[in-house]
Design a protein around this nucleic acid. Structure first.
Lengths: 193, 193
DNA sequence: CGACTTATGTACCGCTCGGAATAGAAATCG
DNA sequence: CGATTTCTATTCCGAGCGGTACATAAGTCG
């Protein structure tokens, strides 16, 4: 009971995610955020707690939305297919919008002041988790005989993640979809586990 | 003439560079900077103009110091050697200090507010220039017969730069020198222009 | 020496930051 | 209806931001 919320919390979170994506954690001010969300600061505060928690929620939404390709890629039947899907997804997502090229998990808080340390650590953890899931998937591929017995799943996973992160930086620098896809193809061309 | 400067301007710039390297442009406050430089704000202002110009100078110093490997790598006799030297340099420089892992040109201002747009654009330009120089070097390798006639210098250069940027992100995420070198080796193992 | 020039330290500027107190509005309860 | 609960809007907070005025100190000139 009580007065019903006048804004759509999902829609507001989507807008907040876009702002964090474009500006990074530190670069996104509460004014930027609430302005894009179409609500006032007290409404944001009541609904999400504070800026850090809002960022956490926005990252969750990012993971389930634009970055969901990372999870889906793991379901490809072969390790080669996983790598292809992952890089293809990175290329697509980092060039989804001209307003915020790049990847939220990379440019959200790569270097920052001590005050943004929680956000920084959150993203480091997210990227590491993604890398670990890929390592496990490649290990499974070795176990299944999909990858050669002497292949190193950790090394391969780190390499693919590195290319994906590099693609995010290149996207932030202005490279377009086709140019990035060419890079991904080049990285995969040399796929010889 | 006039009262002589009481601090070493080179030493102060070195310290400022370290702070920008660790915090990024937005994350580095004037207090952080002048504190590390061992001078007061008016002294900084008199010597460098403002924060943005200080950053510009710090970037120049970075290019001539920690990032000079990028220029030296171009002098390697073969394209393969250039790529190796570039990635090896990226690994070394991004793990030089535990205080500021990563690369200043990547994490200095990847995403930021409008106020940091100049710094952002400066870094985008720097990264693009580095990429262009590598493209030219690879083109020369094609002309010289070092690379096959049908090799694509632009594609190769973008790929190597992407791996280097990815290494910077991985370094910022905590990976150490040896792990990063393993990634670089994996990227080079697949060097088949 | 004194005039001049430049660097320094203190103290301060307007502004914006993330956040919160408070009062009123809109719903559900009895 | 009135009491209660929850959201909204206005207003404000202390702190820190990048940047600066000003007086003073430390040198080089004539």
């Amino acid at each position: 009971m009580g007065r019903p919320r006048e804004f759509d919390i999902d829609e507001a979170l989507e807008r907040a995610m876009q702002v964090f994506w474009k500006r990074g954690y530190e670069g996104a001010t509460l004014s930027d955020l609430t302005g894009a969300m179409g609500i006032t600061k007290p409404s944001m505060y009541a609904a999400f707690g504070n800026k850090e928690q809002l960022f956490r929620r926005a990252l969750e939404r990012y993971a389930e939305g634009p970055a969901s390709y990372a999870t889906r890629a793991l379901e490809e039947p072969t390790a080669r297919g996983v790598a292809e899907a992952l890089l293809r997804g990175a290329v697509r997502t980092t060039t989804l919008s001209e307003g915020h090229p790049g990847c939220l998990t990379v440019q959200g808080a790569l270097a920052s002041s001590d005050g943004s340390r929680p956000a920084h650590d959150l993203l480091v953890g997210w990227r590491n988790d993604a890398g670990l899931r890929l390592e496990e998937r490649f290990q499974r591929a070795v176990d299944e005989g999909d990858l050669p017995r002497d292949a190193d799943p950790v090394r391969l996973a780190r390499y693919i993640m590195t290319v994906a992160f590099g693609i995010a930086v290149q996207a932030a620098g202005g490279l377009g979809h086709d140019e990035l896809q060419e890079i991904a193809d080049t990285a995969l061309r040399s796929w010889q586990p």
